[in-house]
Amino acid sequence: MNVVFCISALVVKELYRRKDFYVVFVLTALITLMMGSISFFNDSSMARYLKELCLFLVWVSLLFISVGAAARQLPAEREQRTIFPLLAKPVSRWQLIFGKFLGCWWSTGLALMSFYVFFVILSGTREHEWPLASYLQAATLHWVLLGIIIAMVMLGSLVFAAPSSNATISVVSIVGLMFLARYLNKIALQQPEPLSSLIYALYFIIPHLEFFDVRDLIIHHRAAIPWWAWSVAVVYGLAYVAMFLGATWLIFRKKRLST
């Protein structure tokens, strides 16, 4: 396991040396603060539109950071041929994959923590309310979602030819899953057989990423999710992470590394 942690620490270092996170963080903070300075009808105490905007920017930023980071991990090692000395250490292929995944997940977790600290301070100072349990649930579910995304993109990096195509296809799929997965059962019921059964089967198979998006609940001051439901969602998300990583390993163990 030490090997895995060493690889993941290297990935974390690599990612915090890059400027992506700092740029998007500063941009998010600037846009949010600028929008927060606007007064509507001589009143500047509205907070929900600001929370919505801030969370939207956080989600978009973290989506691109995680997809960008995960998409280039394995292809970069192969292109620079650093994968050969790495595997000769000896490091097994599953350790390499798991280490890369953990590195990306931790680094996006650090970014997520920075964003949420900013968000909590912003909403707390505007609304004078601190529903910390809800914020904790939102942040952890978001982090689990990022885990699924990273595992999915790492699988894509072995399936698709280039990191750019992998990133594009992954972003389109993730956005599609976020917006459509919840409604696939309704769409299925409106279709003729056998299409209806096919879509319904797909509905049960695909990861329901909408479970991890609880922005509406915190924007509109809804009650916190029951902890049992939160726990089930976390386990559900981790199961998909394991599935994607397992599939990545299955492909990677037979993959020829020379380009």
């Binding site: 059962n185 909408e210 609880v214 609940l217 809804r222 439901a229």
Partner: peptide, 14 residues
């Protein structure tokens, strides 16, 4: 809710 996923999913939105 039409199925268990939909029923469970209702915990995560308004």
């Amino acid at each position: 809710p039409r199925d268990f996923i939909e029923a469970f999913g209702r915990h995560f939105f308004a």
